[in-house]
Structure formats: structure tokens, C-alpha cells
Amino acid sequence: MAKLIKWSKLSRHRLFKLIECFCLDIEASKAAVLLRLNRNTVNRHYTLFRRLISAHQLAQLRRFVGVVEADESYFGPARLRGRPGARKRGRGTFKQPVFGIYERQGRVYTEIVPNCSARSLHPILRGKVDPASVVLTDDWRGYDGLVDVGYDKHVRINKAKSFASGRVHINGIEAFWSFTKRRLAKFNGVKKLFPLHLKECEWRYNQSLPTLKASLFSIIKSHP
């Protein structure tokens, strides 16, 4: 923490207030007004917090076990500027595909992928999910063949017929996608820092304000 105070050149009081604004998810422009700081100063600190959080999320990653939900989502504008045509959602658009894994009542992991083919998704699942886990997905062809690579407890949901049947659903990861898209909407799209915002959303998901503040202070203190 002492190194951060020296780097930031802010008083301890102002730095703590800035951390609180970040945990409250107050945009940089509003935090600058509230704390009477330069917008660039706030942006610089917010970016540092996000980089530390991203490194923390990756360092804490361990194999997912138990009941695990996997799903893909797409981020970006519904239509690119200068390209005529109807607004589209999901596959077949120019949006950025992102793959997500959710451990029931637990952690979330996201990864930006070039596409949602089996070639892209299978290696991530094999590296992040224990083969003994129950893996729940929809019926997208990118999940074809998971049983053949060791996931013999792969259960698929046909959304054309039903979104859930008892505990067979992927509502957890879909709730995370909804949370993430609502949160990012207020930033009017994030391009350069999109990977950092994804990791921040993992960190924020299902956490209370006191937990977030304690976690961020711990992350900052452990930073060399």
C-alpha cells in the first residue's frame, strides 16, 4: 500500500476514497467530480486497479470441479458503422466471442476466443475443468465430442424445447453474462481495456461492497 501511495501522489485519505468509488463502480468521470481530481488521474488509478485485479484472478485460478456450466456470449455493437443491414445478435455477427465457465455457487472464468468452434472451446475446458465434473452446456456444435475427450458427464440443454429441467440448466453463467453486459453498457463500449473489464466482472460478480473493498485492499497490499 505504501508503494501505491508513493506512486499515486495522492493523500492516503483521497486514495482510500478513490478505492471506495472504484468498488462502488462509480465511473471515472463522476469520481473525478466527487473527489475533485483530474479525470486522467482517476483513469490512471482505475486502470491500475483493473490490471491488479486481472492478475489476481489469473493467479487464483484453479481447476473447476463439481457442477460446471459452460457457455459462449458475444460483446460489441449489434451492427458495425458503415455496414448496412439488420441488427444481429450472437453467432454470425462481428461481435467479439467470449467463452465462460461457471462453477455452481462459486467462481467464474472468462476467456476471449477467436470463434466458438470445438477447436477453440475444447482446449479451454480440458485445461480448466476436472473431467470428473458434471459439465452443462447448450446444444451448440462447439461442444460436440466432449464425452470423447473424457467428460462423460456432459449434459446438454436444448433451448428450443426447454431452458431448464430441475438442476439441468446454465442459468448461472447466463446470469453472469447479463450482469456483465449491463455493467459494461454504461461505459459505452470498452475496446482497448475489454479484457481487463471482463476480469473485473469476474471479480465483482456476486460480491458485496465490503467484500470487494477488503479484496481490493488485499490485492493492492500483496502487489510487489
Results as ranks from 00 to 15, higher is better:
D139S: 12
R141F: 04
G142E: 07
D138G: 03
H154D: 06
I157L: 08
V147W: 03
L136F: 03
Y151R: 04
Y143C: 09
D144K: 14
A132N: 11
D152F: 04
D144C: 07
V129T: 01
L146D: 12
R141H: 08
G142I: 05
D152V: 13
K159N: 15
W140S: 00
L146G: 04
D130C: 11
V135R: 02
H154T: 03
S133G: 13
R141D: 10
W140H: 14
D138V: 00
L146V: 05
D152H: 13
D130I: 03
T137L: 01
V135H: 00
V147D: 14
V134K: 08
L136T: 06
D148N: 15
V155F: 05
H154A: 08
V135L: 12
V155C: 10
I157K: 04
K159T: 10
D138R: 06
Y143R: 12
D138E: 09
W140C: 08
D139E: 15
L136M: 13
W140Q: 01
G142D: 14
A132Q: 11
D139C: 15
D139F: 02
K153N: 14
G142F: 07
V155I: 11
V147K: 11
P131H: 04
V147F: 02
D148G: 09
D138H: 04
D148T: 02
V134E: 09
R141T: 05
G150K: 04
D148H: 09
R156L: 12
V147Y: 02
D130Q: 06
R156N: 09
V155D: 12
V149F: 09
H154N: 11
D139L: 13
N158T: 03
N158I: 01
R141G: 14
T137P: 02
R141E: 12
Y143L: 10
H154L: 06
